[in-house]
């Protein structure tokens, strides 16, 4: 067999096929430059903020000094306080509480959303039966259901988790459904030719094909779920990031409020980044095929 597109192992004359290049300053800049730029960018942002606040152009109640926010953040993250001692503010406890609820909600959303989405994709009777409800609830603003949930569950953790589940379950379900529906026909044909039984078509083709869709669904679900967390905590209970936000606003503690917002940004960014990383690990072919 000839070697058409394999690298040639031996070259008689001329330069070696693969040469190590020296690492130049340009390479270093290409690699670390964006980080340096981002760091400078953020530093400038906070410096300008600090300056504006110090000049007193804006009421400190609306815009505290950046340094005050960081101080509140530091205090809130390094100390713990009972839920009653909100105003002195332990951000850490509230963040952990919210994340715990988010985690519970996401697990429930996955446990419901993945199997139902797969079933709906695979079976048109199940699809026909469930899709009116799924599309109805998934297209409406879920927040509209909150008063009803409060009626049923009161201002309880259960209510909060239900809000999270309702926010997150539909993107997961619809993505799983779409994955099954769009499974590459030629992959299915190939599996059939090589002897796949019906069950194997699902385990060896449909499910692996759908997996990255599900991860994308979870990614969207986390985004929606976070909205659910904050909203639910705005409305009731005495713990969580949403509650702390509300509480700090009520007590005119703006450094704390900004600190909580900062934490929310960091938390959502990290969660999205985590699912991106998971997607890249589990389905590296998808990024490259531009799917």
């Amino acid at each position: 067999m000839s070697v058409t597109d394999k690298p040639t192992a031996r070259v008689e004359a001329g330069p070696p096929r693969l040469q190590e290049l020296e690492v130049t300053k340009k390479d270093l800049w290409r690699e670390y430059g964006p980080w340096v730029v981002t760091a400078l960018n953020l530093a400038t942002f906070f410096a300008v903020w600090e300056l504006i606040a110090r000049l007193g152009w804006i009421n400190p109640l609306f815009l505290p000094k950046a340094s005050d926010m960081f101080a509140a953040l530091w205090e809130g993250l390094t100390t713990t306080a009972g839920p009653g001692a909100v105003i002195s503010g332990s951000i850490r406890d509230h963040v952990l509480w919210s994340l715990r609820n988010l985690a519970v909600g996401m697990v429930i959303a996955c446990v419901i959303g993945i199997p139902f989405g797969l079933l709906m994709g695979a079976n048109r009777y199940v699809d026909g039966l469930l899709s009116p409800y799924v599309w109805a609830i998934s297209s409406m603003p879920r927040i509209a259901l909150v008063p009803l949930l409060i009626l049923f569950l009161g201002f309880s953790v259960q209510m909060q988790i239900t809000v999270i589940v309702l926010s997150a379950v539909f993107p997961i379900m619809i993505n799983a459904w779409a994955g099954v529906k769009t499974t590459d026909k030629s992959l299915l044909a190939a599996a059939k030719v090589f002897g796949a039984k019906r069950r194997q078509l699902y385990t060896k083709v449909v499910f692996p094909y759908t997996l990255p869709f599900i991860i994308a669904g979870i990614q969207q679900g986390i985004g929606r779920g976070l909205v659910g967390v904050i909203i639910a905590e705005f409305l009731g209970g005495s713990r969580g990031m949403g509650y702390l936000l509300q509480r700090s606003a009520d007590t005119f503690n703006s450094p704390l409020m900004y600190a909580v917002l900062f934490v929310i940004v960091v938390v959502s960014l990290s969660l999205i980044q985590l699912t991106r990383w998971a997607e890249a690990r589990i389905a590296p072919w998808r990024r490259l095929e531009g799917l």
């Binding site: 030629s186 992959l187 044909a189 796949a196 692996p208 094909y209």
Partner: peptide, 22 residues
Amino acid sequence: FQDYALMPWRTVEANVRLPFEL
């Protein structure tokens, strides 16, 4: 197949092994 119909989540080895798994 014209479009190869390889399982993108399987390595070369695992794709070639597929008929034995099915």
